[in-house]
Write a protein that binds this DNA or RNA. Structure first.
Lengths: 195, 195
DNA sequence: CCTACCGATCGGTAGG
DNA sequence: CCTACCGATCGGTAGG
């Protein structure tokens, strides 16, 4: 059980940075903004982190790891394609719900990674997307999903819906993450399902 | 019929800026980058535009106007809620397809507008979204759509799918915009429809 | 559309 | 974690 008080100073820096990056975007966030949020001088940040980009790297790759782990859990299970897709969607939403701020940064700011990090990140992402695409293809092959659907459109629509969630989802006023995952997958999967 | 050659210099500046903003983001795009793209000095840009932000304002509000016009056309027609929603979706996609670059900027960079432009922009957007939400509510009231759906989730899923389209849609390798609109609305609306 | 330039701010370092 | 500071770059202006 991790509490705010137990965060190392480095973790505090990264969390504050995530909030800042989410609000203003990575490029428009200055190290002086970040220092001010933490009540220290900008130069002092460099006792904890090597560079501004290192923070972005942590945020992006840590989230990528969480998504991958969640998907691997689902792939282990013996399920029908539509059930596997449903569980994959719910897992993805649960990972995002655990840290909506980092999720928003992951989604919107990864393009500011420099090489070779950007390339590595995009490879992880395409791999993740392709594994969802396979579920859809399996569903078409087994007859659970319509053959008429455009696979690329289907998987992109799925990821669009998933990735925008941090932009509007408010855990205080909206339904809880698991219920959200259920409803979203119902909405998408039943839109794919025959009849 | 407008051709590249007929663009005023100001329009050329705005189009080049849109490409730049889409690729690197507004904050990370410098006026020197933009000038280089056009083969002139940075200072010369200011003969055509008042400021960097004025370019962003043009892009965002011009797109907003196009979206509003498209929606008004659909609202004029006497249609069932699901048909109206379908036409609204197709119209939205057609507007985006006319300028995917500006659409991407509209979606991703509007937050860099300063006040009062940002506030005005967000008001236009919430109004637009609410008009789509009404279509969904009408569909529920008339029994075309399931009563069990979360309206906010449904409309946000819809807009997520629409707004991410410029991120992956390639008019050269993918289906054409009208067909895309048909398929996307089928996928979403049939996911909403009873049975 | 250019040259010449401005004040402000940027990410980051040295040294303590 | 701070003071002091650096070179680079930013959006933009003056004047032609």
């Amino acid at each position: 059980m991790e509490t705010v008080a137990n965060l190392t100073r480095k973790e505090q820096v990264i969390r504050s940075a995530a909030q800042l990056f989410r609000e203003k975007g990575y490029a428009a966030s200055s190290m002086r903004d970040l220092a001010q949020k933490l009540g220290i001088e900008a130069a002092s940040l460099y006792s904890h982190i090597k560079s501004k980009e290192e923070i972005l790297q942590s945020l992006c790759f840590d989230m990528a790891t969480e998504f991958r782990k969640s998907l691997e859990e689902v792939e282990k299970q013996k399920l029908s394609p539509s059930e596997r897709l449903r569980k994959g969607i719910i897992g993805h939403i649960q990972v995002m719900a655990k840290d909506l701020t980092a999720s928003a940064v992951f989604m919107n700011e990864h393009r500011h990674l420099s090489q070779p990090f950007l390339r590595d990140f995009l490879l992880l992402r395409i791999n993740y997307i392709n594994r969802f695409k396979s579920m859809i293809e399996d569903g078409i092959r087994t007859g659970q999903f319509k053959e008429s659907i455009d696979k690329k459109l289907a998987v992109m629509t799925l990821f669009s819906s998933l990735n925008w969630m941090p932009m509007w989802y408010d855990p205080k006023s909206d339904i809880d993450p698991t219920e959200l995952g259920q409803q979203l997958s119902d909405m998408l999967v039943n839109g794919l399902k025959k009849n």
